[in-house]
Design a protein around this nucleic acid. Structure first.
Lengths: 345, 345
DNA sequence: TCGCGGAATTAGATCGTTCCAAAAATTCGG
DNA sequence: CCGAATTTTTGGAACGATCTAATTCCGCGA
């Protein structure tokens, strides 16, 4: 009755008048125990206020029911959404996801990963911090814990990843801007040491070339992948002799930053400068003007990643296929109406 | 050398040529072991690729180094920020925070809490889902695990909470609108069964009365605490015979929703309808028009809550003082210029 | 050389669970 | 009513750490 300080399986056994083994059996829902005994045990569990000690259990069990989600920036709604997608899958698999934030800091990430390993996670989903070396995961994989990267790939591709089709997305965006009549384009945000960024820039270049915009009319401005970075990019780009009239942004946050910077200069996004974002976060459709963006189905990718780890855990392997998610351009208002038609490709 | 499948303290001991006890001592940084032995052991740890098994350790240790953070809506940037504030504190205390999301669902919350308890958390910080009963925490507190509520208080105040001064915040907001010349005010969003909401509505009423706006000129519209809820609230309010000209919103998300709904009707936020938000999320300053909002120092509250749990863990108590954080009104553009003084209510 | 005291190390019990093999209880056919 | 077959239940040995008390080292003064 009176919930003891820390009741164990033994206390439950005593209370129910059975052996600890029987209690254990009931706990894992084994069909071996007679129904009325099970009922008795469950009642005893209630009565003594027993809480299962997973730590002790994991000592014997092959693997735990926790999966670690290590995310590089929880404050970006984009990643929060990714997390939510994964949670959905895990929940129905009886797995508990523990989320941790690395704040884009590789050192912190190292600590967090260590912690998760110590905690005995069955698998890991990681959206790696900028500057993460593949090395960081070798150890983990070696000890048999499956790792799946989400949203960001590593240069050394030994770690399976679930990512959107960055290249195609950026190409679509570039093509759209050119179709609108723009001839001098820029890519804003990200750093060349991030694989995602490289992919997007590559796609952007590809989209430009394919539509008749040459190397000399392209500017790539590196910068942080948040609002502040976006503002800086715009300033840098407009300071050039022959400034671009439109930009594909590394992500929506950068695009929002660019909008801000434009307004600050008395320019109107969409009319005086065209913008395409990337990720299509919820905010994109609510901004004024609504942001044209490359939609990547974040939650879907999250689910996919979750399924991947689950399968890897089951099959006891640490390798898996990469998965590249489809993207599509959601056209809204941030690229304005078509520029005049007199221009030819 | 070759990292074994799962090296234990014993393997390390063997490798270093000492006993497991010595290794254990080194692991917890005891000064009892001779420095060169410690070095030898640490090398062995590296060599065999040992990972500490916290589950096993917790079996003997008084309490673990994990603290659970249970959050009701991770996709709200507001809560993400709260989480980040807490993490900062925990990190420097050598504690690892595990975050879980309840998606505002009490059932899910129950599961998550159970999981955390099973995992042997040393403490919990919870931003409770709507409709949480104090009952949910009785068990947990009884078994000696400290719980601190963040941002939301429960009706039955047995659980210590760290919350902003909701009442004062709402009063400030109301006063501001009245000072701007508004005479018919509304409160948008939230439900009367949430304590936070009650507090804010109370403060709103108080602010109105104190500034000469009477009961009959006040409308309170309940609704979800997100964009969608905000849109619904505006529609409901404007459908009234003598509609309000300004509103205090339950939070910024609601305010953003109201802005959207206004635009949809061809009305301009700030000019045709004044708005004050609550929470002052980062987006608030970036919207057009920038949102006037009640700033609550989210990260600060997070830190405060974190410190609270830490202290409770140390002193082995499950009770603590509530803490009410200061608020202040950040005036931006969403309330427009002062209305002209000639008009009367 | 011996004994002594403090520093460093260690054996062994223990934490709360799972799993195995074996024991006990039950069912059933003859 | 017996024994075989089957269903339930159970004791005891793990799992990988910590902790306590005991043991071994080591330098040093007598």
């Amino acid at each position: 009755m009176a919930a003891r300080e820390n009741a164990t399986i033994l206390d439950v056994a005593r209370q129910a008048g059975v052996s600890k083994s029987t209690v254990s059996l009931v706990l894992q829902g084994s069909g071996l125990v007679r129904p009325d005994t099970a009922v008795k045990v469950r009642k005893a569990i209630e009565d003594v206020g027993y809480v299962y000690n997973r730590g002790a259990a994991n000592l014997r069990k092959a693997h735990s029911n926790v999966i670690g989600m290590v995310i590089n920036d929880l404050t970006n709604p984009f990643f929060a959404e990714l997390a939510v997608g994964m949670e959905r899958v895990f929940q129905s698999a009886g797995v508990v996801p523990f989320i941790a934030n690395t704040a884009e800091n590789p050192v912190r990430q190292e600590e967090v990963l260590k912690s998760m390993m110590e905690q005995g996670v069955a698998g890991l989903i990681v959206s790696p911090a900028r500057g993460t070396a593949a090395e960081a995961f070798r150890r983990i994989q070696q000890s048999g814990v499956p790792v799946v990267l989400a949203m960001r790939r590593l240069r050394d591709g030994r770690v399976p990843a679930v990512v959107p089709d960055n290249q195609r997305g950026a190409a679509l965006a570039a093509a759209h801007l050119i179709r609108k009549g723009h001839r001098r384009l820029a890519f804003f945000g990200g750093f060349s040491d991030m694989v995602v960024c490289q992919e997007r820039v590559d796609g952007f270049r590809e989209g430009c070339e394919a539509n008749g915009v040459g190397h000399e009319d392209i500017t790539v401005v590196e910068g942080e992948t948040n609002r502040k970075g976006g503002m800086a990019c715009l300033d840098a780009a407009l300071a050039q002799p022959n400034p671009p009239t439109a930009a594909v942004c590394f992500n929506d946050a950068v695009a929002f930053g660019v909008m801000l910077a434009l307004r600050k200069r008395g320019m109107e996004p969409g009319r005086d400068f065209a913008l395409v974002g990337f990720d299509d976060v919820v905010e994109a459709q609510h901004y004024v003007p609504a942001l044209t963006s490359v939609a990547v189905d974040t939650a879907g990718l999250g689910e996919r990643a979750a399924h991947s780890v689950l399968r890897m855990i089951q099959t006891r392997t640490t390798s898996a296929e990469d998965h590249v998610g489809a993207v599509n351009l959601v056209v809204r208002e941030s690229c304005g109406p078509d520029l005049n038609v007199s221009r030819m490709a």
